[in-house]
């Protein structure tokens, strides 16, 4: 899922205090899974902001909504009536949702309420960890299902580095497994260690952000 976290409350309060009426919008998809921007979080952040603003003597009305997906125009359209009443929007969806609202409801100002930071899996309750870096040239088939781009602190493609700890943890964070240690162990378990010694073509980064902003056209889906 796309992972996001609330921005510091001071920053959010500072943005809102110049407005009269604000729409706080959540998204019931990825950011709900990571407990940052779903309906629960909207209903938590709204009273918190109202309390903070009231304490600072700012009289601001905050109304709320949560869309099923803030990155799909059909759902975004559902906000039209509420947006007509407000002079600002704060979105706690990922950056895609924020931009969708900014594009559809221009010139109403749209503030991001979260920082979007990673593509993660929920390893256990309350613990998320990066699993994908959207690098555009997936090598998981060669690395036994572990992604070194997302999970190695140095994104090494020829690890492990010299900093792996004796217990197989990363030198950067003792609570994180060295992903290259995991790759080597799994290769060994499957009797395929030699596959890691083969020369590989240089990774093609052009299909990710290195190739400029991503834009994909599928003629079979176009109208």
């Amino acid at each position: 899922m796309i992972f996001a976290e609330w921005k510091p409350l001071d920053e959010l309060i500072d943005k809102l205090k110049i407005h009269r009426k604000v729409l706080l919008v959540g998204c019931a998809t990825c950011v709900a899974e990571c407990a940052a921007g779903g309906e629960k979080e909207v209903e938590t952040l709204a009273p918190l902001l109202r309390m903070a603003l009231k304490k600072q003597d700012h009289s601001i009305e905050i109304i709320t909504a949560t869309l099923e997906k803030q990155c799909e125009w059909e759902f975004v359209e559902q906000l039209a009536q509420q947006v007509a009443e407000v002079d600002a929007i704060m979105s706690i969806a990922c950056g895609i949702g924020v931009q969708a609202l900014a594009e559809r409801f221009d010139p109403v100002v749209v503030y991001p309420g979260v920082n979007t930071s990673a593509l993660t899996i929920r390893e256990e309750a309350g613990l998320w960890a990066a699993r994908c870096a959207a690098c555009g040239d997936c090598i998981l088939g060669e690395t036994f299902g572990y992604c070194p781009v997302a999970r190695c602190a140095k994104s090494l493609l020829n690890g492990p580095c010299g900093g792996t700890r004796k217990d197989g943890k990363c030198e950067v964070n003792e609570e994180v497994d060295c992903v290259w240690n995991l790759i080597v162990e799994r290769a060994d378990e499957r009797g395929r260690l030699e596959s890691l010694s083969k020369f590989k073509k240089a990774k093609d980064w052009s299909n990710s952000s290195h190739g400029g902003p991503k834009r994909v056209i599928r003629e079979d889906l176009r109208q």
């Binding site: 629960k40 209903e43 938590t44 009273p47 918190l48 109202r50 309390m51």
Partner: peptide
């Protein structure tokens, strides 16, 4: 008890 319930009571 959810976090939002407590905050709404205080609000």
């Amino acid at each position: 008890i959810e976090v939002s319930y407590i905050l709404k009571l205080l609000e």
